[in-house]
């Protein structure tokens, strides 16, 4: 059995996952990053994207895939924590709403500048992540 590390996935309103992980792959601002147990202490900013993890639930290995919003990933010697604005499972994604969100954000982006542009980009990225998770593009 692969070695594991205590892993928590937390949003402002809920602890989405609290268990053990063998591998966590998250989209940082620098690109995808895979974290294995006993990773060097690490703190990264996450972009909205699809977070994948091999986790252990009730003794069995399981694949966890979620569309996540902006957040942070912290790897410590004894635990791995991901903080995100939102995290949606496959079943929680409303595809039509995600497409609409993306189109509206792209529309707003045409007139936005600076900070506002970056915020709309986050909305677009999150909508894209939701669509990618559900197999739409």
């Amino acid at each position: 059995m692969a070695s594991t590390i205590p892993f928590k996935l937390i949003t402002p309103t809920k602890v989405i996952f609290d268990g053990a992980a063998e591998l966590v792959i998250a989209v940082t601002t620098e690109g995808e990053e895979g974290i294995l147990p006993s990773h060097a202490p690490f703190l990264a900013a996450l972009k909205p994207g699809v977070l994948r993890a091999n986790v252990q639930a009730e003794g069995k290995s399981e694949r966890l895939e979620l569309a996540t919003g902006e957040g942070f990933l912290q790897a410590l010697p004894d635990r791995l924590t991901v903080l995100v604005d939102e995290a949606l499972r496959f079943d929680d994604v409303d595809v039509a709403a995600a497409k609409e969100e993306r189109d509206r954000a792209l529309e707003r982006q045409k007139t936005a500048t600076g900070e506002q542009f970056a915020r709309e980009q986050a909305v677009v990225d999150f909508a894209n992540a939701k669509l990618r998770l559900t197999g739409h593009t």
């Binding site: 940082t28 601002t29 620098e30 990053e33 060097a40 202490p41 690490f42 703190l43 990264a44 900013a45 410590l76 010697p77």
Partner: peptide, 9 residues
């Protein structure tokens, strides 16, 4: 800090 922490970016 708890040990040498690496940051990205």
């Amino acid at each position: 800090p708890k040990g040498a922490v690496e940051f990205a970016p």
